[in-house]
Design a protein around this nucleic acid. Structure first.
Length: 361
DNA sequence: AAGGTTCCCAACCGCGTAGTG
DNA sequence: TCACTACGCGGTTGGGAACCT
């Protein structure tokens, strides 16, 4: 709109490239190198615009392009980097040798994005969707109260008409998930305690002692993200974050994450969840979810100023022992199902694959 | 086997921006 | 400082392949 086309459309060919066109472009670039895209097609004898030539070269003809399926490590790296960089496909591609931004973008939109949605993860923020969490917490609390205290059907609580089978299935999945879902499990546990007057008086001791042991329990869980094997090393991720911050100096979530990395992770490999769920830091959980402001402040005061609940949960800080082979085998499943399954654990948010989340939304 | 639907990916489009005069 | 050019990026689209009924 208002902008002149990149080239004269008259006589310019569009659509899929032929073998002859590819060969012409390749021959020309081998002789003269790439660049000067505006004049290249004319010099190369191509009836294409420069933009089209550049795209064909960068996305298809470049000799260093890797073909074939994305490996597990590549997929994990994409998720990690997307958590840091967002839709900066070219920046992500720069860290994945042989992959183009277009290829990564397509892979994200056709596979990873759907996978995250299926698991109840917001693909934009990489955090569990708060509407799902609130729903699950609401249901969890109500079901808890109704089954243990009031012993009345959910419908009597006024939620019956709002809740269909899928929602109940989802809530059940969320609430019954054990080690696959440590944050949510703990969150619901806390919330149920807070909302239940009969257990409120146990809350103080839970805060003081059990919180730590619960965290350790979660850390010890072999299916938590502690078992993940990061494709990117710490330095690479730090570089990506630094780059992100240099472009987004007001992104406090990442600013806060930087000191946490060194304090909490203590030089151990950084798991993806630490980066991909920046909004999951305990202090960022709205009090409407935790239901108790002092819980947040106490938890924070028990540690450093930069305490990150998520970091603690997702980091094997108690040991630097390398993963054993059984964990590795589990994590490195080669089939699509195994990869899906691992991805769920990797992101610590497991929802049955046959559950239609989209329908609920 | 045929028609319909969904998935995947190469390619296109428009915008932002760096570089230049 | 401004206008213009060229390039690169991210979002979107179109068509073929794969799958389903």
């Amino acid at each position: 709109m208002g902008r002149t086309p990149c080239c004269d459309k008259n006589g310019m060919k569009k659509g899929p490239w032929t073998v002859e066109e590819d060969q012409k472009l390749l021959d020309y670039i081998q002789k003269h190198g790439h660049g000067r895209w505006r004049t290249l097609p004319k010099n190369a004898g191509l009836k294409r615009c420069g933009k089209s030539c550049r795209l064909r070269w960068t996305n298809y003809l470049r000799p260093d392009i890797k073909r074939g399926r994305f490996s597990f490590e590549e997929e994990e790296a994409i998720i990690q980097l997307h958590g840091i960089l967002g839709n900066k496909w070219s920046a992500i591609a720069a860290r994945l040798p042989g992959r183009t931004d277009n290829e990564i973008k397509n892979y994200w939109n056709t596979r990873i994005r759907k996978k995250l949605l299926r698991m109840g993860i917001d693909p934009v923020t990489h955090a569990p969707r708060m509407d799902l969490l609130e729903l699950a917490s609401l249901l969890g609390s109500s079901l808890y109260n109704s089954s243990l205290q009031l012993n009345v059907p959910a419908g009597s609580l006024g939620m019956g008409p709002m809740v269909n089978d899928d929602v109940l299935t989802l809530a059940t999945a969320l609430l019954s998930s054990h080690c696959e879902n440590p944050e949510l499990q703990l969150q619901n546990l806390l919330e149920n305690q807070l909302r239940n007057p009969q257990v409120q008086n146990q809350f103080e001791s839970f805060q003081g002692n059990n919180l730590q042991s619960s965290i350790q329990e979660v850390q010890a869980c072999p299916t938590s993200s502690a078992a993940s094997t990061p494709f990117l090393n710490e330095t690479q991720l730090m570089q990506a974050i630094a780059e992100h911050l240099s472009q987004n100096p007001t992104d406090f979530a990442y600013q806060n994450s930087l000191p946490n990395l060194w304090q909490v992770h203590g030089g151990h490999p950084i798991t993806a969840a630490s980066f991909t769920n920046p909004t999951l830091s305990f202090d960022s959980i709205p009090s409407s979810i935790t239901g108790h402001q002092t819980l947040k402040s106490n938890a924070v005061s028990n540690n450093t100023q930069n305490f990150s609940f998520d970091s603690v949960l997702s980091t094997p800080s108690s040991t630097s022992t390398p993963l054993d082979s059984s964990q590795m085998t589990y994590a490195k499943g080669s089939t699509e199902d195994e990869r899906d399954s691992y991805c769920s654990n990797f992101l610590m948010f497991d929802i049955p694959s046959d559950l239609d989340v989209n329908a609920i939304m």
